[in-house]
């Protein structure tokens, strides 16, 4: 089963409140985590998104799509990065997410990726 593990907020802004040592540890932690998931054969994809201040939102205004600066959501609700993992079940996905939460001390969302249509 595939799950998406999502982090929210803004990485650059968040790091501005952290110490040099914390950032150094975080880089090591993320590197080790990705490597562990790759070794266990569970990592499908992991990506970080550029800062929300660089985002554009395209809205439907007066009958036309119009691009505006900034993310659609509040910055604390804006997606900042994700892992896609292929695991035995939800329990394992939550276990992976817990490992991240224990380090970053921020909430993380775990959602199953929907399957292809069932056999009929």
């Amino acid at each position: 089963m595939k799950y998406m593990i999502m982090t929210f907020g803004e990485a650059a802004t968040m790091m501005e409140t952290k110490s040099k040592d914390w950032i150094t540890d975080m880089i090591q932690f993320m590197h080790t985590l990705d490597e562990d998931l790759r070794q266990s054969g569970e990592l499908v994809d992991a990506q970080g998104l550029a800062d929300g201040s660089q985002a554009k939102t395209v809205r439907f205004l007066d009958g036309l799509p119009v691009a505006t600066d900034g993310p659609f959501a509040e910055s604390k609700e804006s997606l900042v990065g994700y892992w896609v993992v292929d695991v035995d079940g939800e329990e394992r996905a939550i276990e992976i997410a817990s490992r991240i939460v224990a380090f970053v001390e921020e909430p993380i969302e775990v959602r199953q990726i929907m399957d292809a249509p069932p056999e009929v």
Partner: peptide, 22 residues
């Protein structure tokens, strides 16, 4: 810090944040 917010490279963002924190 401004550079860290603008870069599209994750390792570079972390590197720049580290420079700012230093």
């Amino acid at each position: 810090r401004r550079a860290a917010r603008m870069t599209a490279s994750l390792p570079e963002q972390r590197y720049l944040a580290l420079q700012a924190a230093r």
